[in-house]
Design a protein around this nucleic acid. Sequence first.
DNA 1: TCTGGGGTCCTAGGACCC
DNA 2: TCTGGGGTCCTAGGACCC
Length: 410
Amino acid sequence: MTRPRRLLHADIDQMFVACARLADPTGAGKAELLLVGGTPEGRGVVTSASYPARRFGIRAGMPMARALRLCPGAMAVPIPGAVVRRQSRAVRVALERWTPAIETCSVDEHVLDLSGTEAIYREDLPATARRIRAEVLEVTGMTVSLGGGTNKLVAKMAADVAKPSRGGDGVHVVAPGQEAAFLASLALADIPGVGPKLQRRLDRFGLVQVTDALPLPVETLAERFGESVGRWLFHAVRGEDERELAIDGAPKSVSREETFPTDLMTDQALGTELARLAVRVAADLRAHGAKARTITVKLRDADFTTRQAATTLPDAVLSDRTILAQARPLLARLRKTRRTGARLLGIRLSGLVWPDTGAGTQLALFEAADQPGTSDTPADVTLAQVVDRINQKHGQGTITTGSALESLEQ
DNA sequence: TCTGGGGTCCTAGGACCC
DNA sequence: TCTGGGGTCCTAGGACCC
């Protein structure tokens, strides 16, 4: 019998609202009714709203236009991306003083594994959590809610209960052995992974509270909700979760997408946007030091129908040119199937590989004549490296491979 | 009311191989 | 000539999370 793990889930309170206030102390910093998110054209959704604004019924994910109708006096600002990244990093650094075993789940969530630190800190987990909370606030100015438990699921749900918006005081630790009792006080919808669709399916069987699901054998849950979901739910309602922390987890995919201020009607306009997205997503890929084998183009039509087309290459690539050369026919295929106004266009790169730099990566000296654009040439790679270095030095977007090629040709 | 952008994971079907 | 079953890879779509 191994000792139970000691995990803390740290969730930054109101991160986007707090960062918007940091970014603009005299404007957003003073606005009680603050909405963060959306685009200047008003097409986006609310990412986060201040507590006073929430009293008007505003929730994350709500269209900004509707939120402003509900709360006409509110100030709306875009997400302050640079401040969010800086503060997220600062919180992570502050947490690393307590343990090196940290999984970063998103910009505002981290999970700490404090197993084995009892002997060092010589106090119980709630006491350590309170000291961490105080130190993070002092060092970064960010308030975190901390949830403790023996697994990721319980720690995360404990962090939700700890939030000031749920009436908590910032720390909630579920003692080992109390997982099932903790879950039993909550609703099924409180379990992360139970979204709107599953909630509705559960509701049809009269399952709303966690206690409603507890009497059901695993076979019944599997029968009603599928083998995978049923088994997962059976364990989740008992507070059981064996998942390991993904420490320093490498990304599985990188993507860029854009919703246009107004729908694009022509293939030509979409082609221009596709090239811009290819440049951005390829730069992200290389910033990770990765290459990609699968290229996916995503298209959202005016009526919100979302379609995608993908291709997988024999060898992973990283250049703007090759990625765009693969993306163009995919977009053409999607447009051929249905040519209507386009609301959104995106490119995702997956099947990521991290080339072993010591071994010297294989490159095609010349393109295969029968398959143009399926691999990077040495010139593609050199050009990408030069462009990345210039942008690193002078700021993203200073030049692109397109503009670099033009200046080389002059 | 009219739906962002960045991700992860799962499912199902078809191709292909043994 | 027809047949089975399993494994892997790929594509497309969808649920879910922050």
